[in-house]
Amino acid sequence: MTLRTVRILLWLPLAAFLLILALVAGGLIKPHDAAIRSQMVGRPLPAFDLASARGDATRIRAQGFADGKPRLLNFFASWCIPCVGEAPQLLALKRAGVAIEGIAVRDRPADLAAFLQQNGDPYERIGLDDSSGVQMALGSSGVPETFLIDGRGIVRSQHIGAIGPQDVGDMLAAVRAAQ
């Protein structure tokens, strides 16, 4: 190695450090989103077939979503505290004519009934997802989460966490756009 290359080599540690610094500064300026987004957006709704939480004989099936009408698919549970806060927004969406299907995660029908009694029932149907199978199939990592499924049964978007009052307008627009 020539003396010149050696002299350049001596500055390498500084260069490496500055790179790390830039990376970290970038991470600090734009704090990244800890939420794990579903990769199913843009793909057909995975097949599932769940028993109804209302104690009747209807089933909630993936095929039922491809009927030309866009819907929201809401993952929730009676044991989930943020779901209580989300309930009024779901009711508002329902009043605006949006079809909402519910999937109750690891829940008991009796608890669910009490939850719906207290917080209102915006759901067309509610499926019981006892072992989070549908939740996993959709790449969802918690409750509440809401997916928009278009009329052809394609997953169009995912909303992680409770739907706040400020989200209702956007969501309504998204549902209309998926028409």
């Binding site: 549970a77 009676s78 044991w79 989930c80 505290i81 943020p82 995660v105 690891r106 829940d107 008991r108 608890d111 006892d130 072992s131 409750v143």
Partner: peptide, 12 residues
């Protein structure tokens, strides 16, 4: 901890 515990028994 924000959530209450699910009441369902876990999958064996």
């Amino acid at each position: 901890a924000l959530y209450a515990d699910p009441v369902m028994a876990p999958e064996p």
